[in-house]
Design a binder for these strands. Structure first.
Lengths: 147, 147
DNA sequence: TTAAGTGCAAATTATTTGCAGTAAG
DNA sequence: CTTACTGCAAATAATTTGCACTTAA
């Protein structure tokens, strides 16, 4: 937990720009702002449209809510983000796009990555005839233990 | 695939009534109708509010959509149904209430049970300190294989 | 210059709720 | 009788969309 230096900030911009570019997306002011919040520090992140909207505003880079939605969709379509369905009522977006398990903290409605070995899938899943696996979602729903 | 006999229908009513009773719910006309559609033939079923609403109407037992929603919630609260979150945009309800994996057919938006051994979870999932597992959701997302 | 991106406000979709009437225990 | 249940219509909440304006290439 170190305060970000000028160097860090420059780096975050570069990362964001590169990231957009790798998805073939135009680097507009609002996309750069959102991208920086998502991948600016190289750490994985889980956001909702609302949380990202607020984060952008808080960072002094306000982006309209509609654009946040459109942008998240665009990032997903470009393969830069993965949509994770856990809550039914809202969508979560994950900067980690490989297939991996998640923890969902039911009390706070918060999503986080689970270590790849949190569950071991022994062998390939059985697949019905004529179908192929698009993805296997594993959600470990947690609640705070009553002590 | 046999046409249901009078015997089958009588049986379905009994099953539905018993099922409601086991959840401590009053056997109203609309609940019985919905319960019968859900567990009347002893087979497991996956429905959405909309699909159940239509099924009831088609069966000559119309139930208002609001009541379908309220009833599905009541069945869940009573532990008679499990809510499965796969689609983000709509909720699915499963008559099988134990923890088991699902197939989700992305093309048709259709949910079905996967055999318990479709994926083998080797060992207990790792759980962060201070938390306990409420449930582990495993969704095998399928798409029709392009031949 | 031009197609893509943005931001409002209005539209949609799934779901919930208020409330007056109805039915189960 | 009394409380829970039902159904409509109106309210919500998350998300999408139409359209005039802006901007990256």
């Amino acid at each position: 937990m170190r305060a970000p230096t000028a160097q860090d900030r420059a780096n975050a911009s570069t990362l964001a720009a590169t990231w957009l570019d790798s998805g073939g997306l135009r680097p507009t002011r609002q996309r750069l702002a959102l991208a920086e919040l998502l991948v600016g520090d190289g750490r994985d992140r889980h956001v909702t449209a609302e949380s990202l909207f607020e984060a952008a505003a808080a960072a002094g880079q306000p982006v309209s809510l509609a654009t946040v939605y459109n942008t998240l969709r665009a990032f997903c379509a470009a393969g830069l983000l993965a949509e994770v369905t856990v809550d039914g009522s809202r969508s979560y977006f994950d900067t980690r796009v490989d297939d991996h398990p998640h923890y969902f903290w039911e009390d706070e409605g918060h999503l986080s990555d689970a270590p790849n070995d949190a569950v071991r899938l022994a062998g390939e899943p059985k697949v019905p005839e004529g179908a192929e696996v698009a993805r296997v979602d594993v959600i470990i729903r947690l609640r705070r233990r009553e002590s």
